[in-house]
Design a protein around this nucleic acid. Structure first.
Lengths: 317, 317
DNA sequence: ATGAAAGCGCTAACAT
DNA sequence: ATGTTAGCGCTTTCAT
């Protein structure tokens, strides 16, 4: 017990005993067995973090990074799981995760599978859904509304005097929500021809610059007379800028281009990219600190944090 | 015991008993406690994966993704740890990790701290150092030589008739190794003026497109008469291409630009980026499968896998 | 094919 | 401030 106390609550041990213990720890190379400790105390100090995919250019990576740093600082380790975009996989993953008895689960993006959601809820374990808003949270939510983000982009383009909108979007739940918001607002503001669909090019996640190039080629902005293009990610938008340059379409004179995410290259494209910024670092940090507070019993019983977003106006729109 | 067997070795249980167990599992919502199982069996089915940083645009992310998929398929969960670029942090992290008794540790890039290395070695736990080669491995190594990669890029530029080389590099161990190789070979081949240093712009990790733009501005390729530029990452190279375009420096006529990593946007820049490709997916997969084989007792006693690299010739050089 | 006994290495709870 | 006892929920081992 004196060893245990020395390592977990040094102040409760007299200096003399503590020094003897630390000396013995050093000479023997003793490393405590957290597996045993976890079994007894029913606390693993493990957090499961479920992400859609591990891929560069995903805007949420920054949130994951901020989160993992904040958790590490509080003495928690992060276990990573890839949900993929398949609900069946989610259920398996949730069971594999729960078997390890994490002290908390962070879901980046909402969990699709209803069965997985109810399984999580049933355990009573703290859950943060990060990077999205939902009407029916499992537990805590920290993020922003993708639907409203899409609307804000359409409104911005309209406010800049644009007349006809097009978009390149991704078949991934958050991007779909943004696309819906974009279309709804674009239609409301007259950026879409009556009775016609909004010119759209849809690609599979995860986004790549290639998709932006292909999207511009497929949409043929000159022919279909659009003067504003929303892209579901900055990576796609960057590809669109490049394709425009190579086709002689002048941005923003002929075509305004808006991205999403304000990734760290957005200010350095030609022309600099107008985009929607989300404070990923803050979201990740808040997800972690609220989770830790909840676990350690000082947390909020309920929590819905909407961090919102802002349009970053640069040269491309 | 029949429950335990049903869940871990179903074939050793008669069908009747098995069905009863599975039915009970379903109705009670029983989720086995792997913490207890791990304590008794001394196997956690956890793999610790230590990465330099979680950041988009790092070429090794693809390796991490392939690895985590292969581990998941084999029934192992991945615990993520950020080493940062600070050796002190490495030691703390290694202790925190070892306390969880992972069945294996994957280090992306070699471990800097000698103390951390010997601590890992002392435990006898399987270790894979991935994404690099080293003369003094802790255990297994799967990767390629960054030094040779740097040399290959210099040799390629020389073979294309280039006369004077410059570079934009990053203060991160792997990039430093490449830079050394690049300088050595460039000097040997006469791409550097006698008695002068190779024109170099150095930035902090992780790389960003901004660094490429700043690097071109700082190096002033026209004034210092370089006609070949090596960039430590594709992201930096892309920034360099953009800055060249905005300054009217024509690539490749005035300046050949080579990147590193062959990230998925490399073919889509203007002009398309010549770069050095590493088969990250294969490296990640091999790291995982060899680790699993070793853990499960069928693995190689020793292992050094050099996956090499290839120059992908595109328009920029 | 199934069951009984023991114990993995800690820490909660209680005693001194 | 330190020590004693018991037990977390499994799996190994041995018995039937």
């Amino acid at each position: 017990m004196t060893v245990s106390r020395t390592l977990s609550a040094p102040d409760s041990v007299k200096e003399k005993a503590r020094l003897r213990v630390l000396e013995a720890v050093r000479t023997t190379g003793y490393v405590p067995n957290l597996v045993a400790g976890s079994l007894r105390s029913n606390r693993t100090r493990l957090i499961a973090c479920l992400v859609p995919v591990i891929s560069s250019g995903s805007a949420f990576l920054t949130a994951v990074q901020a989160m993992s740093a904040a958790f590490a600082a509080a003495g928690y380790q992060v276990m990573l799981g890839e949900k993929g975009y398949d609900p069946g996989r989610e259920e398996q993953l949730v069971d594999a995760i729960l078997a390890r008895r994490p002290d908390g689960v962070v879901v980046v993006g909402v969990m699709q599978s209803e069965q997985a959601r109810s399984r999580l809820r049933a355990t009573g374990i703290p859950v943060v859904e990060a990077w999205d808003m939902t009407d029916d949270p499992i537990d805590m939510v920290v993020g922003f509304s993708h639907y409203r983000a899409g609307r804000a982009i359409a409104a911005y383009l309209h406010s800049q005097g644009r007349k006809r909108a097009g978009m390149i979007t991704v078949s991934e739940p958050r991007a779909v929500a943004r696309a819906k918001g974009f279309v709804a607002e674009a239609r409301r503001l007259g950026l879409v021809r009556k009775g016609e669909p909004l010119p759209t090019h849809t690609v599979d996640a995860p986004s790549r610059m290639r998709h932006g190039r292909d999207g511009v080629t497929a949409l043929r902005p000159v022919d279909c007379k659009i003067d504003a293009l929303y892209c579901a990610s900055d990576l796609i938008a960057h590809g669109a800028l490049i394709e425009c340059a190579s086709q002689g379409i002048v941005v923003p004179e002929h075509l305004a281009v808006v991205g999403f995410g304000d990734l760290d290259f957005a200010a350095d494209t030609l022309p600099a990219l107008t985009t929607l910024r989300v404070d990923s670092r803050a979201i990740g940090h808040a997800a972690a600190t609220n989770m830790v507070a909840r676990i350690e019993g000082e947390g909020p019983a309920q929590l819905v944090l909407d961090f919102g977003f802002e349009i970053v106006r640069r040269a491309s729109a």
